[in-house]
Amino acid sequence: MLTLQINGHAAEFDVPDDMPLLWVLRDVAGLTGTKFGCGVALCGCCTVHLDGQPIRSCVTAARDAVGHKITTIEVIGDTPAGAKIQKAWLDLEVVQCGYCQSGQIMSAAALLAGNASPSDGDIDDAMSGNICRCGTYPRIRAAIKHAATL
């Protein structure tokens, strides 16, 4: 049994302790907002926060999340930075297919939470681990800058 604190709720999970957090979230906890894209931390679709830091849940063993606060896309809007990023995403119509956007938003929200006015270089550093196949990068960049003004 592992005790995980997900989105403010502590719960026990009877899973192997090496099961990636991604599958605990999606298949056991039913939180499907966090996406599977590559399985090896190449695309960023599965990004969630561990104590506010963005991590790739597809390569994070569940046991390594014990004792940390896990935050997913479903509640990121409850944080000031997350709410600004979500609003900016809609204001600038960033989203196309949307599949990667949970991960993009989690990466962007973590960036903005720690950096009130990120530069282009900061955005490159924080966001280049997240792939978008629809090609929304220019709007993501603009939306992060817009979020910083909200």
Binding site: D17, D18, P20, A41, R56, V59, T60, R63, S107, D125
Partner: peptide, 8 residues
């Protein structure tokens, strides 16, 4: 972003 390694 640096991410935790895939442990076990």
């Amino acid at each position: 972003t640096n991410l935790p390694p895939p442990a076990g």
